[in-house]
Each structure stands twice: as C-alpha cells, then as structure tokens.
Amino acid sequence: MAKTKYKELDYTYAVARLRALENNLLEANGLEKLLSAASADEAAKHLQTIGWKGGNFEEMLQSELEGLFSLIESLGGGEFLKTQRVKYDYHNLKVLIKSELTKQNGDNLIMNLGNIGADIIKNAVINRDYRLLSEDIKSAIALAYEQYARISDAQAVDIIFDGALFHEINEYVKELPEEKIPVLIKMQIDIHNIKTFIRVRKMGKSVGFIEKVTAAGGNIPREFYIENFNAPDNQDAGVFEHTPYRKVFSQDENLELSLDNMFMEEVKATRFGAFGIAPLAAYFWMKENEIRNVRIILICKNAGISEEAIRSRLRG
C-alpha cells in the first residue's frame, strides 16, 4: 500500500477543531443536567437543544455515533478508525451468520460502521461468496460453520469471531504510524482480557476455555491468565497484584466500570498535544464514552431508576 509518510503537523487543523468540539462533550456537568431532567423525554429534549438529532433515543445515539465516525474520517483519522471499525464488521458478521443458522431476519441489527460496507458483507454471507472479504474473516467464517456443524453452540461461533477480530485489530495497530494509540489499544485488549478472565471464572469454565477467549496483543501475555486461572476464588486482586491494573481491584466499585474508567483516564491524558493523530483518537474515545453515558442515562431514566443508581454507572 502506497502510504504517504505520517507527518504529525498534518493534523494541526484537525486537532484545533476537535479541541473546540471537546467543549461540547458532555462531561460531569452536562451529564448531571441530563440526570436531573424530570424524565427521559425531557433529557432527550435537552440533548436536541445542544444539537443532537433524531426522533427517538436510538436514532439520536446512532446518528451521533455515525457523525463521530465521519468527523474523524474527514479529519484524516482513517488509519486509526480502521482499528475501531473492526468491531462493527464482526458484529455484522455475527448477526448475519446467526440469522443464517436460525433462519431469522436480523437486518435491523446491522450497523453500517465497519471497514466493509454492510451490503458487501451481507451479500457475501448470503451468497457464500467471500471474495471481497479479508483473509481473517474468510477463515473465521469457514471455522465458524465447521464448529457449528460439530457442536451447535452460538457461543463457540462468537468466540471464533472475537479471536479473528483481535487478530485484525492487531494487524491494523501495526500499521499505525505513532506510538500513543497502540498503547491505548493494548490497554483495551488487556481490559477485555481481564473482564473475560473474571467472567469466565464466575461461569465456572475450564482452563482450556480461557485459552480460547483471551486475546493476544495486550501488555499482559495470555499465558498469565492461563497460569492464574485456578487461583482461589476471591483472589482476583492478588492475581493482578503485579500488573498496572492493580488499582481497580482495590476499589469497591463494579469492576467493569473501574476498568472502563481507568481507560478513560488514560485517554484523557493523551488528548493534550496539538499535533499528530493521538488527539483524534482521544476525542473519538471520549465521544464514544459520552454516547455510552447518554445511553445509560436515557434508558435508565426511562425505566425509572434513581438518579443515584444511574450516576454510579456512568463512566469516565
């Protein structure tokens, strides 16, 4: 691929623009305003006054997410976005394969944010013509069908796709021209592995299982999880004693939340700096997190969950 050389000064415009846009991100104060709205509908109305578009919650969140992708793309963050689009490719694949296997129609679950257009991937899966898909995806689909034929287990199918997903992310990370983003993506992989480690232990699975579901490419090697899999229960903190993630185990909060918060802290530390692509990535993650927080508020508010309980679920 003929790539123009990465010059961090190429992003000066983008970074300054994002810096201005950062002001519009809903951080503690803005979220608090949403929380204190009388109802979910009031909160949605407030969002509309600050420029969110769409009739219902889902549309609003979806259009913000799509807007974020096209903004970062237009500012030259395409190389970085590839790493973030992968998850939508695999989400679409999972939807399509599961639709095929269960004869359901999952079209309304397809998200057109992947590296591969939703139509292309859909035609490929339905017509079993995988020429336009990447090698990773091709072999994952073959493996998934084979695995499903042997043990009809949707989880096994998902696990195969997750493995391919991380492989593909790691490939894209190698092509990234600078260092801060790979550090953050490695952290994301670690966080995924830690969450999985805890969850799998709770589910009472075997060591063989953890080997299949942890992803390569993090700072903590996969062997670590396999070795420590049989550590006594309630010893999670001890297992991670010598990793940078020690501190989340000492907190009394929900573990997933603490890990997400830790990631967001790291992202926020990266956003300063007026050049290069890292501030683009930081903005991307901050906005993504904002959308997640807004979703939490809207859905929980709609269900009448107390402000206090919602607040304790917000990230970052």
Partner: peptide, 14 residues
C-alpha cells in the same frame, strides 16, 4: 502556516 491551520480548525467550530 502551522498556527493558521490550527486557527482554521478552531474557527470552523467557533
């Protein structure tokens, strides 16, 4: 030029 690019980035929003 560098400062100008940054300035245009800002001006496009503010």
């Amino acid at each position: 030029g560098i400062a100008g690019e940054a300035a245009s980035g800002l001006i496009s929003e503010e």
